[in-house]
Design a binder for these strands. Structure first.
Lengths: 136, 136
DNA sequence: CCGTATCCGCTCCGATACTG
DNA sequence: CAGTATCGGAGCGGATACGG
């Protein structure tokens, strides 16, 4: 939607995303960052710095080559991950966080750390959750 | 603060999740919290407190009834959301964060706020990202 | 008003094969 | 080693109808 009433301040609003709005580009960014493998890749790179492709694959348990490549491309395109390919044989590619990636990874890691620390509380809650209907 | 050295305290380690392990239950918790609608629901409840079902549906743009109900059930089962159904006609159901939910929502909101504030930087990065192949 | 149940298209994802 | 291309099954998610 175009703001035909040209208030300069209104233009600025465009720059701050609103995740409650369905069409906002920030939704896409959120999807990339909080995607199943996106979270784990960001944390892995934050914890241990630069990784090669296969290192990441080993570190992030259960991820397939396809999804890892796909995830890395999304994060690279969003400017969170830096990809450096060395033109040697055999190929050698290093992935690391950009400054932008470091910033977002701080928050992601805070979240994952909390989950790791409190997963037992959640498991307890699940046990006590009474099924709304009879288990068949 | 807890110095565990080969003591029975080691058993406690089991209670701390490891998101890098594919089979760890913490993976499931992460999935719920960082799911597309899970994130937005947690933030909505954190920002404005108690919501009714239809309020939530209006607030979280683009969510369907099915996915909202599904998301709320997952978060309720994990102990993040409290569901209170008033037995009146027409039915009236309130959703709010539990203390556990408040804790995790702090981190989730920190992440979403960062994204909203910095989405323009990401969009800039996307523009400058050179397509490895023809743009899709 | 607040869900649940069913159907069904569509996307995601894993497996496989291939290239540089 | 580090990807890309293609195929096919599985499950997500939307629309609709219905129950409490």
């Amino acid at each position: 939607m175009k703001a035909s009433k040209g208030s300069p301040l209104l233009e600025k609003v465009k720059q701050r995303g609103d995740l409650h709005a369905a069409g906002c580009p920030s939704r896409g960014v959120l999807e990339h960052v909080t995607s199943q493998w996106g979270v784990l890749v960001l944390v892995a790179l934050k914890e241990d710095g630069t990784h090669r492709f296969s290192e990441l694959r080993r570190k992030v348990g259960g991820v397939s080559e396809k999804m890892l490549a796909q995830t890395l491309q999304a994060l690279e395109q969003d400017g969170f991950v830096h990809r450096e390919a060395h033109p040697v044989i055999p190929p050698h590619v290093d992935y690391s966080l950009t400054p932008l990636g470091e910033e977002v990874a701080v928050h992601v890691e805070a979240l994952t750390s909390w989950i790791e620390d409190n997963v037992h509380r959640v498991m307890t809650a699940r046990t006590q959750a009474l099924p709304r209907k009879k288990a068949s």
